[in-house]
Simulated assay, not measured.
Amino acid sequence: MSRAYAAFTETGLALAETLARALPGPVTRCGHGGPSLAEWTAAAFAQNEALIFVGAVGIAVRAIAPFCRSKASDPAVVVVDECGHFAVPLLSGHLGGANDLARAIAALCGAVPVITTATDAHGLFAVDEWARHHNCQVLEPERIKTVSGKLLAGEPVSFWSEFPIAGPAPAGVNAAPAPEAADFALTLSPAGNALHLTPRIGVLGIGCRRGTTAEQLEAAFSVFCAAHTLAPQCIAAAASIDLKQNEAGLLAFCAAHRWGLSFFSAEALQTAPGSFTPSAFVRNVTGVDNVCERAAVLASGGSIHIPKQAGGGVTFALALSPFAPDWRVLS
C-alpha cells in the first residue's frame, strides 16, 4: 500500500515521521513553506492508496471532499490527532483498507481506532473487507449494501464459490445450492444478480504474430473472455516469450490494462511443469512447442485454467496462481 502523510504543526510532523518509519510513505508539512493543503491533497489522492492526515478531522474532510468519487476507487483516508489519541478512518474503510490502516496506526502510537462502519460496530461479516483481504475485485460495489443490509437486519445471506473456502463460514452466511441463488459469489465467471467477488489470480499467456497491434490484441481478448464467460478483472499479469519483448502492440495492450508483463526464453519455457498443446509451427519459429500456456504457468506458479485459444494471429491461455480463500481471515 502506497501512503502519504500530511501534517500541519511541529507536533503533528513529529508523529507523522514516527508513523512513517513503521508504515513508510512521504511526510509533508502543508503550508509553512510546503505545498498548500489543497495542492497536497490533489496530488496525494491521485497517486496513493492511502492518505494519513495528522491533525483535525474537519481539516481532512474539507480537503478530500472535492475528490471523493466512489468506494471502488477512492484511496483509504485516515486521520490521527496530533497527540496520537485517536485514529479515525474517514474513507474506504473496507475496500480501501482504511479500517485496517487505522488499527495499525493505533497499535503504533497507542491510539484508539475509531471504527464506525456498521458491520464492524455490530461484529458482523463484512463482505467487502473479506474480498480485499483475498485480493478480489468487487465487480458491483453498489450491491455490497444488499449483503450488508441483510446481515444488519438479522437476515442470513447465501454465498456460492467455485473455490473451496477453508474454515467455518461466519454467522449468518450460508452456502447457496446454486450460483443464481447466492447473494454473493466468489467466481471468475460472474452471472446473475449476486455481488461478484473475482480473485485477481489470473496470468494471461500471450502469443502473437510480429507486428500485431494493441487493437488486434484487445479484440481477441474480448472474444476470449466472452467465450469463457471470464471476468477480465481476474487477470493480474501477462507473460510471453522474450522474442516478443519489443513488440509495441503487446506492450501497449498490457500497459493499458496495467498488467505486469513477464518474458521467458525458449529454454525457460521448456522447463514449465505440465502438459501443453504442442505446435510444430510455433516450435520452428520460437524454439519451443507452446508459448502462451507455458509462459502463463511459469509466471503464475500455478496451472492452466483455460488452455490455448487461437484466432487472428493471437493465442491466449489462462493460468491461475495458487489461491486459498479462508473465512477466518477476518477473525
Rank of each mutant, 00 (worst) to 15 (best):
M1P: 08
S2Q: 15
Y5A: 07
Y5C: 08
A6D: 09
A6I: 15
A6N: 10
F8M: 12
G12T: 09
L13V: 04
L13W: 15
A14Q: 13
T18P: 12
A20I: 04
R29P: 02
A38F: 09
A42K: 14
A43L: 13
A43D: 10
A46W: 02
A50D: 02
A60I: 05
R62L: 07
A65N: 05
C68T: 12
D74E: 04
G84Q: 10
H85N: 13
S92P: 06
G93N: 11
G96I: 02
D100E: 14
L101Y: 07
L101D: 05
R103P: 02
A104P: 02
L108T: 02
C109I: 09
A111Y: 00
I115Y: 06
I115K: 09
T119Y: 02
T119C: 06
L124F: 10
V127W: 15
V127K: 11
N135P: 01
E140H: 13
S148K: 01
L151Y: 13
P156Q: 11
S158K: 13
E162Y: 00
E162S: 10
F163W: 15
A166C: 03
A169W: 13
P170R: 01
A171F: 08
A171N: 11
G172W: 09
V173D: 00
N174A: 12
A185M: 03
T187A: 00
T187G: 00
A191K: 13
H196D: 01
L197S: 01
L197W: 04
R200F: 01
G202W: 02
G202S: 04
L204G: 00
R209C: 11
G211F: 07
T213W: 04
E218V: 06
A219I: 11
V223L: 14
A226N: 15
A226G: 14
H228C: 04
H228R: 14
L230P: 09
P232F: 02
A237P: 07
A238Y: 11
S240W: 03
I241E: 05
K244T: 03
Q245D: 12
A248S: 14
A248F: 08
G249I: 11
L250D: 05
L250R: 13
L251R: 14
H257Q: 15
G260M: 10
S265P: 07
A268T: 13
A268H: 12
G274H: 03
P278G: 02
V282A: 03
N284A: 15
V285F: 07
G287P: 10
V288H: 04
N290H: 12
N290V: 09
L298H: 07
A299S: 14
A299L: 04
S300M: 03
G301D: 11
I306M: 00
P307A: 06
K308E: 05
G311K: 13
V314L: 10
T315W: 00
L318P: 03
F323E: 00
V329N: 01
V329C: 09
S331K: 13
S331T: 13
